[in-house]
């Protein structure tokens, strides 16, 4: 929860804004006029700790902790409604992605199931070159949602009886090439 009292200047993180500026498209948030079009268009703002408009205001003021640990970034479904409506053409969805990555990097992801899903997805791709949906679901349930594993059964069953749940992965052939590309990215460092 946001501290409603006046937050002392020294508590704010003034480097946060420059970090966001350094991301591709990040500098754009300077142009935000706080009109609220994004938050009012967002199908999920009603459950977010802070809607996208408020997120930008928090970023600019240096509320690092509030931003990176908010549920907002993980509830964003990447529907791009806000982005196409923003009068200032800010790539809001892409800023949300950037915040996801920053939160992952800083380990602010406790209890965030979307992170488990994303991490396992990346693992599928790094192993097979393609996503193996069945294995991804299984790994995700084991790691993030074992307690509720049963709730996935009826849907999995429907896919299975309709022959829509392949048991074996499709692999690409030239994994060697893909690995070389991935290794090079590691060397170059993320952006």
């Amino acid at each position: 929860m946001l501290d409603r009292d006046i937050v002392a200047e020294y508590k704010l993180d003034h480097d946060f804004l420059s970090e966001i500026y350094a991301l591709p498209g990040g500098r754009e948030i300077k142009k935000c006029i706080q009109c609220g079009t994004c938050s009012s268009s967002c199908p999920l703002s009603y459950v977010m700790d802070h809607g996208p408009r408020k997120m930008f205001s928090l970023i600019r003021a240096g509320f690092r902790e509030e931003v990176l640990s908010s549920n907002t970034i993980w509830f964003c479904s990447s529907c791009y409604t806000c982005a196409v409506r923003c009068p200032k053409d800010i790539k809001i969805t892409d800023v949300m992605y950037a915040l996801k990555r920053l939160a992952v990097k800083e380990g602010k992801t406790k209890g965030k199931k979307a992170v488990v899903l994303s991490r396992n997805f990346a693992r599928m791709v790094n192993t097979y070159g393609r996503n193996h949906e069945t294995e991804l679901m299984a790994r995700y349930i084991l790691e993030a949602d074992l307690l509720h594993a049963l709730k996935f059964v009826p849907q999995g069953w429907k896919l299975l009886v309709n022959r829509r749940l392949p048991l074996f992965p499709h692999r690409m052939k030239n994994m060697d090439q893909l690995k070389k590309i991935l290794r090079k990215v590691d060397e170059l460092g993320e952006i």
């Binding site: 992605y97 992952v104 899903l117």
Partner: peptide
Amino acid sequence: GATAYMSVKELM
């Protein structure tokens, strides 16, 4: 890469 890969690594 879908939305999921983008959430963890951008350049990759």
